[in-house]
Simulated scan of single mutants.
Amino acid sequence: MPIVVNLDVIMAKRKMSLNELSEKVDITLSNLSILKTGKAKAVRFTTLEAICRALDCQPGDILEFVED
Rank of each mutant, 00 (worst) to 15 (best):
D68M: 04
V43F: 02
V5M: 03
C57H: 10
R14W: 02
I27Y: 09
K24D: 00
M1C: 04
P59H: 02
S30R: 14
T46Y: 05
S17K: 10
A54P: 11
L35P: 06
G60S: 04
I27E: 11
A50I: 00
N19Y: 14
I10K: 08
T46N: 03
V9S: 07
K39I: 06
I51W: 10
E23Y: 11
T37K: 10
A40Q: 00
D61L: 08
L18P: 01
V9L: 13
A40G: 05
V4S: 06
N6Q: 09
E20K: 05
L18M: 07
D8Q: 14
N6C: 08
G38Q: 01
K36W: 03
L29V: 14
E64V: 15
N31G: 05
L7P: 10
A50R: 15
M1Y: 02
P2E: 02
S17G: 14
K24R: 05
E67N: 11
L63F: 14
V9M: 11
N6P: 03
K15R: 13
L29A: 04
L21M: 03
L21W: 12
S22H: 03
L55M: 08
P2K: 06
D61K: 08
G60K: 00
C57G: 00
D56P: 03
V4T: 12
T47I: 12
E49V: 09
D8P: 01
L48T: 02
S17W: 12
I62H: 05
V4K: 14
L55D: 05
D68F: 15
P59T: 11
I27G: 00
M16Y: 05
L48M: 03
D61F: 11
K13Q: 13
D56R: 10
S22C: 10
S17L: 13
L7A: 04
N31D: 09
R14H: 04
L32V: 06
V9H: 08
A42T: 10
N31R: 13
E20F: 09
G38L: 03
V66C: 10
G38E: 02
V5Y: 07
K13P: 06
M16T: 11
E20A: 14
V43K: 00
V66G: 00
K24A: 13
V66R: 14
T28W: 06
D68G: 15
C52Q: 07
I3V: 14
E67M: 11
C57Q: 05
E64F: 13
K13V: 09
D68N: 09
N6K: 15
D56E: 15
L21V: 10
V25I: 15
V66H: 10
K41L: 09
I10M: 03
K39Y: 09
E23G: 12
V5G: 06
L29R: 15
S33D: 11
I3H: 01
K13D: 10
I3E: 00
C52A: 08
A54C: 09
I10P: 06
L48Y: 05
A50T: 11
K41A: 09
E23H: 07
K24T: 02
L32M: 08
V9R: 06
I34M: 09
D68L: 15
